[in-house]
């Protein structure tokens, strides 16, 4: 393809090809501190292309392709090309990842132990992970937790943190401006702004960590906390996994081991300060 970019995010390498220069230039800027895929061979290919040749220039719109595709995926305007690239990479992971059990969760680490946060979209897992990474935690990822069935460890996948709508201002209030990507307005998920993980998170991204606590945060409620039974954690995590079925027995064994060995809590929070305090309290009591 005319323009391309390669990057390693945690243990996974990507190659992104594009009919346009603009999305590639943005990726080069935002992922500048990241290494290249191991041995120069990426695990997955993403393609950003025009549905018809003239759509490269006339009302350019970006189709998302790659090794794995969703047949009905709608194209995005070229101004949202960066988002298309990120969606393409997520799609390869969601549909193609077979080494790790993929859990839709954010992960931060402290003292070699990992805190996993999962929940419905809007629960605040990306925002919380970004905020915790500004308070001494290592950011391991805001979207996917990679559980290694062989070792039971979590691998980092610290792609750009995808901040949406009001959480953009929340994080921007605490972080330097040069760690943000362009403001993407009017996307299918509202307003999006990408947040670049800190240098430490990138430098240590190949180090896995032992899962020590699973949290189910919910934003918009009075502060509350409860334990979550392993059986409930199991069911919620199968729903939060895109490849649980595809992994077969390995997936079942890995998940069973995770939920029976790691405590889980649900926390409700009305604001940032309350969320951080509750996370710290749950972490101390794990």
């Amino acid at each position: 393809m005319n323009h391309q970019f390669s990057v390693a995010i945690g243990p996974v390498g990507f190659r992104i090809g594009s009919d346009w220069r603009a999305p590639i230039a943005q990726l080069e800027t935002l992922y500048r501190a990241y290494p290249k895929p191991t041995d120069g061979v990426p695990d997955f290919t993403v393609r950003l292309f025009a549905a018809r040749p003239w759509r490269r220039v006339l009302r350019p719109s970006v189709m998302i392709g790659g090794d794995f595709v969703l047949p009905e995926a709608a194209p995005l305007p070229l101004a949202q090309g960066l988002l298309a690239a990120e969606m393409g990479m997520n799609l390869q992971m969601a549909l193609g990842q077979r080494r790790y059990l993929l859990l839709h969760a954010s992960v931060v680490e402290r003292d070699g132990e990992a805190l996993m946060m999962t929940g419905v979209s809007g629960a605040g897992k990306s925002t919380l992970a970004a905020l915790l990474s500004l308070r001494g935690w290592r950011l391991m990822g805001d979207e996917f937790a990679l559980l290694d069935p062989e070792t039971g460890q979590l691998h980092a996948f610290p792609r750009l943190v995808s901040l949406k709508n009001t959480s953009i201002a929340t994080v921007a209030a605490e972080a330097p401006a040069d760690r943000f990507g362009p403001l993407l307005e009017g996307t299918p998920k509202g307003t999006i702004r990408h947040f670049v993980p800190d240098a430490h998170a990138i430098a240590t991204m190949i180090q896995p960590a032992r899962p020590a606590l699973i949290l189910f945060p919910s934003f918009g409620f009075e502060p509350a906390a409860r334990d979550v039974a392993p059986s409930e954690v199991f069911v919620r995590l199968t729903q939060a996994s895109t490849n649980y079925v595809a992994l077969g027995e390995r997936g079942f064994d890995a998940l069973t081991k995770l939920v029976t060995s790691v405590p889980a809590r649900a926390i409700d929070y009305p604001d940032t300060a309350s969320a951080i305090a509750q996370v710290e309290a749950a972490w101390a009591a794990r």
Partner: peptide, 22 residues
Amino acid sequence: VPPNVGRILEDAWRSVEQGRVV
């Protein structure tokens, strides 16, 4: 094969093995 190619092929092998079972 290069180590990362080996890992990719190993994943592919696991995937078809699971596909065979199914």
